[in-house]
């Protein structure tokens, strides 16, 4: 009789404790999901911002590449013109 009573009490207590843990786990899951969503959305916004930055940088780099090509050609032409002018000067000085 006492053993039965003890057993029943034990089961009731166990069920109670487990129900408490169930509720705790459930609320924890909800909280964790909420937190996770927040941190994830922060990450997404960071990523978007970085992506935008990347896009702007990429455009700048395209312009930069183009500029460098141009600059190279122009500097080459300037050098060539200076050399050509030097040649003219040298030739005229020789004649003198």
């Amino acid at each position: 009789m006492e053993l039965n009573l003890f057993f029943n009490c034990f089961i009731i207590v166990l069920i109670g404790v487990l129900i408490f843990f169930n509720i705790k786990t459930y609320t924890d899951t909800i909280q964790s999901t909420k937190n996770s969503k927040q941190s994830y959305s922060k990450l997404v916004s960071d990523f978007m911002s970085e992506e935008k930055k990347h896009e702007i940088n990429s455009r700048s780099l395209i312009l930069l590449d183009e500029l460098h090509n141009n600059l190279f050609e122009r500097l080459f032409k300037i050098t060539r013109d200076i050399l050509s002018m030097q040649k003219i000067i040298m030739t005229s000085n020789k004649q003198i």
Binding site: L71, R74, L75, M85, I88
Partner: peptide, 25 residues
């Protein structure tokens, strides 16, 4: 020499153009 003067003008103009291009970019 006129050729030298012309060349110098050409280099000056071209270099200015290059600076503008650099500034534009």
């Amino acid at each position: 020499n006129e050729a030298v003067v012309n060349k110098l003008e050409s280099i000056s103009a071209f270099t200015k153009e290059t600076i503008f291009e650099l500034r534009d970019t």
